[in-house]
Computed example of a mutant assay.
Amino acid sequence: MDKFTLLTHTYQQTKMSAALGEWRVRGLRGATTVSHNSPQAIAEAVDELLNALEVNNPLDPAEIVSVTFSATPDLDAIFPAAVARRRPGWEQVPLLDVQQMQVNSSLKCCIRVLIHFNTPIPQNALRPIYLHGAAQLRPDLAIFS
């Protein structure tokens, strides 16, 4: 079998396996805004966002590969990952916090999340969640405002 035929065969098998529900790592996005910079306000926003992601997606903490939170520079009262770590089943999930880059006239008081997890669900069936002021980031995907 030549290289082109092998690559074509591999691609077709991958495409067919995905259609049959083969487990893959998928990325799930979400974002929210916080009313003010306090541990309580940030914790409430992170919990609300993660609750909405779990209710609207087949998200099992045992299948999570990693979670990255980013926060705008005006939010520094608590790490979003510290809030997530308190959730049942999230004790062993690899979590990371980063600071969102500063861009002129960008959304303030915003927390974003990217969850990588194993699932047989296709990427286009996942439901990203954009809450409160963050709905303006992706109005095409926002299901809450």
Rank of each mutant, 00 (worst) to 15 (best):
G30C: 09
V67W: 05
V98H: 03
I64E: 05
P94Y: 03
R112I: 07
V65N: 07
A81Q: 02
T68H: 00
P128E: 15
L126V: 12
H116Q: 09
S106K: 05
F69S: 06
C109I: 01
G30W: 08
E48Y: 08
I64R: 09
P73G: 05
M101A: 11
A84F: 00
I115V: 15
I129N: 04
F117T: 09
S66H: 01
E91D: 14
L114W: 06
Q99W: 09
P128V: 14
S35H: 13
D76H: 06
I78T: 11
Q123G: 11
I115F: 10
T32Q: 03
T33F: 15
L107V: 15
A77Q: 03
L59A: 01
P61N: 02
A81R: 03
Y130F: 15
R127E: 12
N118F: 07
V93F: 04
D97C: 01
S106N: 14
P128I: 15
V34L: 10
Q102N: 13
E44S: 13
A82Q: 11
P61W: 02
A81H: 03
N124L: 12
F117C: 07
A43P: 10
I42C: 04
V67T: 10
V93Y: 00
K108Q: 14
Q100A: 14
A45L: 09
S105W: 08
V55I: 14
D76R: 07
V113S: 10
R112Q: 15
P120M: 01
T72M: 02
G30Q: 11
P80D: 01
S106H: 02
T119W: 04
I121F: 05
I64C: 02
P88W: 06
I78C: 01
Q100I: 00
D47L: 10
A84H: 04
V103S: 00
E48S: 13
C109E: 06
I42E: 05
L131A: 15
V103K: 04
A71S: 14
G89S: 12
V113N: 02
H116Y: 11
